[in-house]
Protein backbone atom coordinates (compact mmCIF):
# COMPACT_ATOMS: atom_id res chain seq x y z
CA UNK A 1 0.00 0.00 0.00
CA UNK A 2 1.25 3.40 -0.99
CA UNK A 3 -0.20 6.73 0.11
CA UNK A 4 1.65 10.01 -0.30
CA UNK A 5 -0.02 13.30 0.55
CA UNK A 6 1.53 16.51 -0.68
CA UNK A 7 -0.17 19.74 0.47
CA UNK A 8 1.78 21.81 -2.03
CA UNK A 9 0.55 19.78 -5.01
CA UNK A 10 1.89 22.38 -7.43
CA UNK A 11 5.38 20.96 -6.81
CA UNK A 12 4.36 17.70 -8.50
CA UNK A 13 2.78 19.61 -11.40
CA UNK A 14 6.03 21.57 -11.89
CA UNK A 15 8.17 18.42 -11.63
CA UNK A 16 6.22 16.78 -14.46
CA UNK A 17 6.53 19.87 -16.65
CA UNK A 18 10.28 19.80 -15.92
CA UNK A 19 10.89 16.23 -17.06
CA UNK A 20 8.19 15.18 -19.52
CA UNK A 21 9.87 16.65 -22.59
CA UNK A 22 13.14 14.84 -21.89
CA UNK A 23 11.76 11.41 -20.97
CA UNK A 24 8.60 9.73 -22.27
CA UNK A 25 8.22 6.78 -19.91
CA UNK A 26 9.97 6.11 -16.61
CA UNK A 27 9.85 4.03 -13.45
CA UNK A 28 9.05 5.96 -10.29
CA UNK A 29 10.60 4.29 -7.26
CA UNK A 30 9.01 4.56 -3.88
CA UNK A 31 10.83 3.61 -0.69
CA UNK A 32 11.14 4.79 2.92
CA UNK A 33 13.60 7.45 1.67
CA UNK A 34 11.18 9.04 -0.75
CA UNK A 35 9.63 9.18 -4.18
CA UNK A 36 12.33 9.12 -6.85
CA UNK A 37 13.07 8.61 -10.50
CA UNK A 38 16.12 8.12 -12.66
CA UNK A 39 15.77 8.05 -16.42
CA UNK A 40 17.73 8.72 -19.57
CA UNK A 41 16.44 10.48 -22.65
CA UNK A 42 15.86 8.22 -25.66
CA UNK A 43 19.26 8.99 -27.19
CA UNK A 44 21.15 8.30 -23.91
CA UNK A 45 22.80 11.73 -23.95
CA UNK A 46 21.10 13.14 -20.86
CA UNK A 47 19.86 11.69 -17.59
CA UNK A 48 17.39 13.08 -15.10
CA UNK A 49 17.33 12.21 -11.40
CA UNK A 50 14.45 13.31 -9.18
CA UNK A 51 14.15 12.96 -5.43
CA UNK A 52 11.18 14.00 -3.29
CA UNK A 53 12.13 13.01 0.26
CA UNK A 54 9.53 11.33 2.44
CA UNK A 55 9.90 14.08 5.11
CA UNK A 56 8.62 16.62 2.58
CA UNK A 57 5.21 14.93 2.42
CA UNK A 58 2.51 15.61 5.03
CA UNK A 59 1.69 11.92 5.02
CA UNK A 60 3.99 9.25 3.64
CA UNK A 61 3.12 5.59 3.73
CA UNK A 62 5.09 3.12 1.65
CA UNK A 63 4.88 -0.41 3.07
CA UNK A 64 7.40 -1.92 0.69
CA UNK A 65 9.67 -0.69 -2.08
CA UNK A 66 7.71 -0.19 -5.28
CA UNK A 67 8.72 0.61 -8.82
CA UNK A 68 5.91 1.97 -10.95
CA UNK A 69 6.24 2.46 -14.69
CA UNK A 70 4.43 5.53 -15.92
CA UNK A 71 3.98 7.46 -19.12
CA UNK A 72 5.14 10.95 -18.14
CA UNK A 73 2.98 12.45 -20.90
CA UNK A 74 -0.11 10.82 -19.40
CA UNK A 75 0.90 11.66 -15.83
CA UNK A 76 1.40 15.31 -16.83
CA UNK A 77 -2.07 15.30 -18.45
CA UNK A 78 -3.62 14.09 -15.21
CA UNK A 79 -1.69 16.49 -12.98
CA UNK A 80 -2.67 19.39 -15.24
CA UNK A 81 -6.20 18.73 -14.00
CA UNK A 82 -5.14 19.60 -10.43
CA UNK A 83 -5.48 23.22 -9.34
CA UNK A 84 -2.32 25.07 -8.35
CA UNK A 85 -3.49 25.25 -4.72
CA UNK A 86 -4.76 21.67 -4.58
CA UNK A 87 -3.50 19.04 -2.19
CA UNK A 88 -2.36 16.00 -4.19
CA UNK A 89 -2.43 12.45 -2.84
CA UNK A 90 -0.84 9.56 -4.73
CA UNK A 91 -2.29 6.13 -3.94
CA UNK A 92 -1.54 2.61 -5.13
CA UNK A 93 -2.46 -0.81 -3.83
CA UNK A 94 0.04 -3.67 -3.78
CA UNK A 95 0.05 -5.56 -7.05
CA UNK A 96 -2.26 -3.06 -8.73
CA UNK A 97 -1.65 -2.04 -12.33
CA UNK A 98 -3.01 1.45 -11.71
CA UNK A 99 -2.13 4.49 -9.64
CA UNK A 100 -4.62 7.06 -8.33
CA UNK A 101 -4.04 10.79 -8.07
CA UNK A 102 -6.46 12.53 -5.73
CA UNK A 103 -6.85 16.30 -5.86
CA UNK A 104 -8.48 18.21 -3.00
CA UNK A 105 -9.21 21.92 -3.21
CA UNK A 106 -7.83 23.91 -0.22
CA UNK A 107 -11.36 24.45 1.12
CA UNK A 108 -12.20 20.74 0.67
CA UNK A 109 -15.27 21.56 -1.41
CA UNK A 110 -14.00 19.72 -4.47
CA UNK A 111 -12.39 16.30 -4.50
CA UNK A 112 -11.32 14.55 -7.69
CA UNK A 113 -9.64 11.24 -8.33
CA UNK A 114 -7.87 10.24 -11.49
CA UNK A 115 -6.78 6.65 -12.00
CA UNK A 116 -3.92 6.06 -14.41
CA UNK A 117 -2.75 2.79 -15.95
CA UNK A 118 0.78 1.74 -15.06
CA UNK A 119 3.10 0.18 -17.62
CA UNK A 120 6.04 -2.23 -17.66
CA UNK A 121 9.22 -0.37 -18.47
CA UNK A 122 12.63 -1.93 -18.94
CA UNK A 123 14.99 0.77 -17.84
CA UNK A 124 18.69 0.86 -17.18
CA UNK A 125 19.66 2.33 -13.80
CA UNK A 126 23.06 3.99 -13.72
CA UNK A 127 25.31 4.37 -10.69
CA UNK A 128 26.50 7.94 -10.41
CA UNK A 129 29.54 8.20 -8.14
CA UNK A 130 30.10 11.28 -5.97
CA UNK A 131 32.57 13.52 -7.74
CA UNK A 132 34.66 16.59 -7.01
CA UNK A 133 33.86 19.19 -9.63
CA UNK A 134 36.44 21.64 -10.97
CA UNK A 135 33.93 24.47 -11.05
CA UNK A 136 30.53 25.01 -9.47
CA UNK A 137 28.41 27.94 -10.61
CA UNK A 138 25.30 28.99 -8.73
CA UNK A 139 23.16 31.57 -10.46
CA UNK A 140 19.52 32.71 -10.79
CA UNK A 141 17.60 29.98 -12.62
CA UNK A 142 15.71 32.58 -14.69
CA UNK A 143 19.02 34.08 -15.87
CA UNK A 144 20.30 30.66 -16.92
CA UNK A 145 17.02 29.95 -18.76
CA UNK A 146 17.23 33.29 -20.56
CA UNK A 147 20.83 32.66 -21.64
CA UNK A 148 20.04 29.18 -23.02
CA UNK A 149 16.96 30.48 -24.85
CA UNK A 150 18.83 33.44 -26.36
CA UNK A 151 21.85 31.39 -27.45
CA UNK A 152 19.57 28.71 -28.86
CA UNK A 153 18.29 31.21 -31.42
CA UNK A 154 21.83 31.67 -32.75
CA UNK A 155 23.59 28.31 -32.45
CA UNK A 156 23.10 24.63 -31.58
CA UNK A 157 25.84 24.26 -28.98
CA UNK A 158 27.01 26.27 -25.99
CA UNK A 159 30.59 26.46 -24.81
CA UNK A 160 30.61 27.00 -21.04
CA UNK A 161 33.87 28.34 -19.77
CA UNK A 162 34.65 29.08 -16.11
CA UNK A 163 37.65 31.20 -15.22
CA UNK A 164 38.38 33.51 -12.30
CA UNK A 165 36.80 36.30 -14.39
CA UNK A 166 33.41 34.57 -14.33
CA UNK A 167 31.38 32.09 -16.35
CA UNK A 168 31.15 32.57 -20.11
CA UNK A 169 28.43 31.08 -22.34
CA UNK A 170 29.30 31.18 -26.05
CA UNK A 171 27.70 30.00 -29.24
CA UNK A 172 28.30 30.16 -32.97
CA UNK A 173 25.83 29.83 -35.82
CA UNK A 174 25.28 30.71 -39.47
CA UNK A 175 24.36 34.31 -38.62
CA UNK A 176 27.26 34.99 -36.25
CA UNK A 177 28.49 34.45 -32.72
CA UNK A 178 27.43 35.36 -29.18
CA UNK A 179 29.22 35.51 -25.83
CA UNK A 180 27.58 36.15 -22.47
CA UNK A 181 29.75 36.58 -19.39
CA UNK A 182 28.29 36.41 -15.89
CA UNK A 183 30.57 37.62 -13.13
CA UNK A 184 30.42 36.67 -9.49
CA UNK A 185 27.86 38.78 -7.67
CA UNK A 186 27.29 37.95 -4.03
CA UNK A 187 24.16 39.99 -3.54
CA UNK A 188 23.72 39.83 0.22
CA UNK A 189 20.29 41.42 0.50
CA UNK A 190 18.87 39.33 -2.36
CA UNK A 191 20.43 35.85 -2.21
CA UNK A 192 18.15 34.61 -5.01
CA UNK A 193 19.87 37.05 -7.39
CA UNK A 194 23.41 36.03 -6.48
CA UNK A 195 25.89 34.46 -8.87
CA UNK A 196 28.53 32.50 -7.00
CA UNK A 197 31.46 30.77 -8.68
CA UNK A 198 33.57 28.21 -6.84
CA UNK A 199 36.50 27.29 -9.06
CA UNK A 200 39.33 24.84 -8.38
CA UNK A 201 40.50 24.75 -12.00
CA UNK A 202 39.44 26.71 -15.10
CA UNK A 203 37.18 24.47 -17.19
CA UNK A 204 35.71 24.69 -20.69
CA UNK A 205 33.09 22.28 -22.02
CA UNK A 206 30.70 22.15 -24.99
CA UNK A 207 27.05 21.05 -24.75
CA UNK A 208 24.00 20.75 -26.98
CA UNK A 209 21.69 23.72 -26.31
CA UNK A 210 18.61 21.65 -27.10
CA UNK A 211 19.13 19.72 -23.86
CA UNK A 212 19.99 22.81 -21.80
CA UNK A 213 16.74 24.39 -22.96
CA UNK A 214 14.89 21.26 -21.94
CA UNK A 215 16.50 21.37 -18.45
CA UNK A 216 15.43 25.01 -18.09
CA UNK A 217 11.79 23.79 -17.96
CA UNK A 218 12.57 23.18 -14.25
CA UNK A 219 13.01 26.94 -13.66
CA UNK A 220 9.65 27.34 -11.80
CA UNK A 221 10.91 24.83 -9.18
CA UNK A 222 13.81 26.93 -7.86
CA UNK A 223 15.07 30.51 -7.92
CA UNK A 224 18.67 29.31 -8.21
CA UNK A 225 20.34 26.69 -10.39
CA UNK A 226 23.67 24.99 -9.69
CA UNK A 227 25.89 23.99 -12.62
CA UNK A 228 28.75 21.62 -11.74
CA UNK A 229 31.51 21.17 -14.30
CA UNK A 230 34.58 18.97 -14.67
CA UNK A 231 36.54 18.42 -17.84
CA UNK A 232 36.13 14.62 -17.76
CA UNK A 233 32.51 14.41 -16.62
CA UNK A 234 28.95 15.18 -17.70
CA UNK A 235 27.70 18.55 -16.45
CA UNK A 236 25.20 18.46 -13.58
CA UNK A 237 22.43 21.06 -13.66
CA UNK A 238 20.58 20.99 -10.36
CA UNK A 239 17.33 22.62 -9.25
CA UNK A 240 16.70 22.20 -5.52
CA UNK A 241 13.09 21.68 -4.51
CA UNK A 242 12.66 23.54 -1.21
CA UNK A 243 12.47 21.24 1.83
CA UNK A 244 11.97 18.20 -0.41
CA UNK A 245 14.83 17.27 -2.68
CA UNK A 246 15.94 18.04 -6.19
CA UNK A 247 15.75 17.58 -9.93
CA UNK A 248 19.24 16.95 -11.35
CA UNK A 249 20.07 16.73 -15.01
CA UNK A 250 23.29 15.14 -16.26
CA UNK A 251 24.43 15.93 -19.78
CA UNK A 252 27.32 14.35 -21.66
CA UNK A 253 29.57 16.89 -23.39
CA UNK A 254 30.37 17.23 -27.07
CA UNK A 255 34.00 16.86 -28.06
CA UNK A 256 35.98 17.98 -31.08
CA UNK A 257 37.01 15.05 -33.25
Amino acid sequence: MLELRLVQGSILKKVLEAIKDLVNDANFDCSATGFSLQAMDSSHVALVALLLRSEGFEHYRCDRNLSMGMSLTNMAKMLKCAGNDDIVTIKADDGSDTITFMFESPTQDKIADFEMKLMDIDSEHLGIPEAEYEAIVRMPSSEFARICKDLGTIGDTVVISVTKEGVKFSTRGDIGTANIVCRQNTSIDKPEEATIIEMQEPVTLTFALRYMNSFAKATPLATQVTISLSSELPVVVEYKIAEMGYVRYYLAPKIEE
Binding site: H44, E124, L126, G127, I128, L233, I255
Partner: peptide, 14 residues
Protein backbone atom coordinates in the same frame (compact mmCIF):
# COMPACT_ATOMS: atom_id res chain seq x y z
CA UNK B 1 33.43 18.51 -36.23
CA UNK B 2 32.06 17.90 -32.76
CA UNK B 3 30.82 14.54 -31.55
CA UNK B 4 28.11 14.04 -28.94
CA UNK B 5 29.23 11.66 -26.19
CA UNK B 6 26.79 9.30 -24.52
CA UNK B 7 25.92 9.44 -20.81
CA UNK B 8 26.32 5.65 -20.59
CA UNK B 9 30.00 6.10 -21.44
CA UNK B 10 30.49 7.83 -18.06
CA UNK B 11 28.32 5.94 -15.60
CA UNK B 12 27.91 2.19 -15.16
CA UNK B 13 24.73 0.23 -14.87
CA UNK B 14 23.96 -0.40 -11.23
Amino acid sequence: RSVQLSITGFYRSS
